[in-house]
Amino acid sequence: MSDDLLPTRGEQVQAFLGRTPFAQEIGMRCEVMGDEMTAIMPFQQKLIGNFTIQALHGGAIAAFLELTAMAQVYLVTEHLERPPRPINITIDYLRQGHAKDTFARATITKMGRRMCSVRAEAWQDERSKPVTSLLAHFKVSGD
């Protein structure tokens, strides 16, 4: 990458996801639109947590949401050289995740100097019927 053509933060987020094994493992992609992004986790058989009812594993959805929240924070914190580290997360399992593609978006509720608070929601067929929601705190001081 040449100095006179630095990648945008959106490209950096994409690049980070592209070289992070676990993001690849869950098959996560994201579409960046300025300072917003939508993440996509296409359905794969290995994401199943319950055979009989063909439901996605809660842990897979939670991991997807945590990555989405982290990517969203990274997208808007130009001062950070590396993606932010999570302090804690709370996952609220609202509905059964079915054997189909899952989408997620994250909103930053409060951006502080050292920490930030983020909410993320995952949905499948209808955005208004979230499958799982997440509340996370990340460390955003660059040390």
């Binding site: 676990f22 842990g59 945590e66």
Partner: peptide, 24 residues
Amino acid sequence: KERLVGDPDTGVIHGGVLTSFLDN
């Protein structure tokens, strides 16, 4: 496991793996 790494620079496992593990 290599495929569970969440930080390619340090090789540390992703937090989401711990979530799945502790959830289970």
